[in-house]
């Protein structure tokens, strides 16, 4: 298959598109799980919007990953016929929804990251990735804004919502270091200017989160036993269950079209 114009190898493009796409696919699935359980009807509509945006990004990215790979796998084959060891998403996005505080905290941490990432990728040297990111960055900005408003309200709302927010941060913070750990493919893509070096967005990300938490009467947890491995296919136990649910019907009818 064609390599990127910037000399990015097809396999590396496949790898990074898969990682970015899996983040979207898995988080979209989690957000869709909220359907009919949201805290207010207006929020049903909002959560579904986030899920739909991310699903759209996932489809573009997985399609690109399939093209780059050149083995004829489309978005569905990649989504439904890989096992959890072959998924490349961050551990953060596969964490269960928990309560609304956990879901919004996860969204804040991820959307702040995705917004910075897409912003840089959209002016990067790989045109197909750049095009997807250019559209996605607008969506990520909106997701970040939604999460920001809620974290602020929950952090500064009632005693209960405040303590739920603190618990959510403690729960999810250990998964944030992984956001900035590059795989080898990522490193090579960054050297060619297709992706930003992850070290370059860690500072801005931390600044965004810190100021957001401050205005929400919250702070970054002090110590964390960092967890990582998602980008290499070492996941938490949660992903297997998510995939079992997502893939079961499709795999039960191997040669069917839908």
């Amino acid at each position: 298959m064609t390599a990127g114009v910037a000399g990015l190898s097809a396999l590396d493009l496949h790898e990074v598109a898969l990682a970015l796409g899996d983040d979207c696919l898995v988080l979209s699935h989690r957000l869709a799980e909220w359907t009919t359980h949201a805290p207010e009807l207006e929020e049903e509509v909002a959560l579904a919007n986030l899920a739909l945006d991310l699903l759209g990004q996932a489809r573009s990215l997985l399609s690109l990953a399939g093209e780059a790979e050149g083995r004829g796998r489309d978005e569905d084959q990649l989504a439904y016929w890989r096992d959890d060891r072959d998924f490349r998403n961050l551990l953060l996005v596969e964490q269960p929804n928990g309560d609304f505080a956990v879901t919004m905290t996860r969204q804040l941490l991820f959307s702040a990251y995705q917004e910075l990432l897409y912003d840089r990728i959209s002016s990067g040297t790989e045109p197909r990735l750049a095009a997807i990111a250019a559209k996605g960055v607008m969506e990520a900005r909106y997701h970040l804004e939604h999460a920001r408003l809620w974290v602020q309200r929950l952090g500064g709302g009632t005693e209960e919502s405040h303590s739920r927010m603190r618990r959510a941060l403690d729960l999810l913070w250990p998964y944030t270091k992984e956001l900035f750990e590059p795989t080898e493919a990522w490193g090579r893509a960054a050297d060619l200017g297709a992706l930003p070096p992850l070290a370059s967005i860690e500072g801005p990300w931390r600044k965004t989160i810190q100021s957001q938490l401050e205005s929400s009467h919250l702070e970054i947890p002090e110590f964390s036993a960092w967890q990582s491995g998602g980008r290499r296919g070492s996941h938490s136990e949660h992903l297997g269950h998510l995939l079992a649910e997502m893939q079961h019907l499709h795999r039960s009818h191997p040669n069917a079209t839908w």
């Binding site: 805290p39 309560d99 609304f100 209960e160």
Partner: peptide, 16 residues
């Protein structure tokens, strides 16, 4: 269940 489990969220937003 959705209504009851969402009560603390709605209340937090009102309090804020």
């Amino acid at each position: 269940a959705a209504d009851e489990e969402g009560a603390w969220v709605r209340e937090a937003a009102r309090a804020w």
